[in-house]
Design a protein around this nucleic acid. Structure first.
Lengths: 220, 220, 220, 220
DNA sequence: TATGAATGAGCTTTCATTCAT
DNA sequence: TATGAATGAAAGCTCATTCAT
């Protein structure tokens, strides 16, 4: 963001270019892996030069950061909306969560794969993982609480706890373990899809929701 | 494998050195990520020089390959044994599968994490993922059928199908989807453990088994 | 110099902008060194963009050239005036030369430091030193004899020779060596001041004049 | 220094290579200036590659640091010896200091020029000058007091003060100013020689010593 | 069996320069 | 008159790989 001076913020054209770069980066990361996703390659993918990219982002880390945040936010927004609309039943909310996640994956194949790729492929030069680095970003006082809240929705634990508390879910459920398991199951979709183009994430989402429902619901 | 020439196969000492290198490599990969796991670093970790490593492995890819295969085989052996001992009930076999996987993770923290790290972090120079490369290796006529069979156990689909067929599992179960989901849930443990040292993989294994049981078992 | 085309010469506003750029450049060069004095940085220092600078100067070398020449001329003018006013005694002229030089340094801290910085830090892409490049500029037929004469005053040799010839200075004096030494002593002030803000160039000038007087004057 | 493990320190061959690199670096710095003295250029100058240099020095700053320290130490050693041999008269010691400095310049043209070049051309990425950076190095607890003492000899102030105190030098002498002036005069030799190959540093040294003697000695 | 030395491809980054507006 | 955008050369640096010993 070169144009921070003017309160109007980045121009329309600047935002468009950044979008294009982010999209190109995601594509390249998915195609060749983060390890091989050099700035030159990304530049070529969007018909530009590495210089052009570094004009819009101060360095590569900033580009990756912007990409991750962007995908996270879009994903979180979609999931938030879906969960909110699902009403108060824990059952319905869990289903909405899972289905929305996989609908997002289905609708944004590249982005979802890029995110998975980065989640484990990215390491800061000091060896820090994406999670840690992201926590840093979020702790940045520049970030709004709104942004922080937005991303929190991806945490399943509270949702599960409420379900257990109000009796929708069986009391023997370990919210923490189940949250980890389901998150893993959700993320597995992108990897699976990457090596099996015939994979259908939305169908998988429905199956996963059924699966989770059977596993969680309290039996009379 | 330099020593293939001699019919006697690798000497004891040679095998010991390879072991040491593989262990060091796993450790370094977990510590700093595959991106930063240079041969020098691995060499330092085992008190050797990179030259020493390249004497035992033709190149870095071969080292990674050997590491992955080694972990896979050890993991598969453990899981195979557990599943076999579990008897014929699909329920018990599934539980054994999950528990054994996480017992392996618990007992071989470094190896399990390295495997996860590589699963998504590794890319051949041409951008091929670990799965693809491994399939290549397995197709290598030099590999025995036994080896191939050994690894097949990690595929949950047949196990689930049998359970559905013999009525242990509900018929509405989508074996393929559930296999993907559970594999994702299993792999999630290592990532989780990496960023949360208090995580208990064995407890998680039991919870996951309960979870899967509730989800799969046919209700009367 | 874009505006050479118009017979009227540079406008007032154009000259003002050039002044501003030159001042900014000197400041930045002193602050971060010539090596780090990029056009962007200079631009920022004057609240402009590098494009703005390159409108007024064809390239960076031209900017540096203009800056050096500008400082040289101002310095030479001050010294010329002082030496002329000092009358005919070699003693007085030498003192005037030294004192005027250091008065200029005192009054134009930034410029003096920038000049020293460039004297040894600047190199043309082919490796030519500032002196050589300046000689090129001066040989440019576009320069007036007046300009050339103006700068000649900085050469101490003639002044010293006259002092020796008319008996003010001891005959054993090596004009060339002393000129080199005193020039070095004068230039040392700026470097010294740069790393020691408490340094007083004018006091130093007086001491240096005393020193030179003791060294040069003929003893009866 | 790769071979820190063994107490024997760097091997003979390693030291020889480092020497060669330092010499090449000095040469290139003198030829094209520090600004243009890239690792590739230095590598070419010694018939090597940048990789070869970076094998022996962790990075470019370390190379420059080693070079500067090396020249300083050799210079200081020569001057120390000369001053010590000169006896107790301040007059003789000052002459020895100046003559020895210029004898060193004469005998080590390239090194002396490189040092001058770096003194003002070098800037750390943060803009710090060589002096500041060197002070950092010397403050490094790894350095011996001996090393620190060795370099202190280059400071003229104590020598001058003693001369004033014991009546060899006139009491009106400002030791600090004179030290600055003479150091400037000494350093000027290398610059002068660089642009005038006919310059004779040793002759200059003698003239400078005469000049200083006339300037400092107390008149009866 | 292993090390020390060296190479060069490739990476990120900086920067002078160009050009359309 | 000046800016925003983009380019590409060149820099410092990392690293897998090679080779003599």
């Amino acid at each position: 963001m070169q144009s921070e001076k003017r309160p109007s913020g980045p121009t329309f054209i600047e935002r468009a270019r950044r979008r294009q770069i982010l999209d190109g980066a995601a594509q390249v990361i998915v195609d060749v892996g983060y390890v091989n996703a050099s700035l030159v390659r990304i530049g070529k993918a969007i018909g530009s030069s590495k210089g052009g990219i570094l004009y819009h982002f101060p360095d590569k880390d900033a580009l990756v950061g912007a990409l991750v945040l962007d995908i996270y936010q879009r994903g979180a927004a979609a999931v938030t909306a879906a969960v909110r609309e699902a009403g108060d039943s824990a059952d319905a909310r869990l289903r909405a969560y899972l289905v929305a996640n996989l609908a997002f994956t289905a609708a944004h194949r590249t982005e979802a794969m890029a995110l998975v790729e980065l989640s484990s492929g990215y390491r800061s030069p000091e060896g820090r993982r994406l999670d840690e680095v992201m926590r840093h970003w979020l702790d940045d006082p520049g970030r709004s609480d709104e942004e922080r809240a937005e991303l929190a929705v991806l945490d399943l634990v509270p949702l599960l706890r409420r379900g257990i508390a109000n009796g929708d879910f069986r009391s023997s459920l370990d919210a923490d373990a189940v949250a980890t398991a389901l998150r893993g199951a959700v993320d597995a979709a992108a990897s699976r899809w990457a090596r099996d183009p015939a994979f259908d994430p939305e169908a998988y989402g429905r199956e996963l929701a059924d699966f989770a429902e059977h596993a969680c619901r309290r039996r009379p």
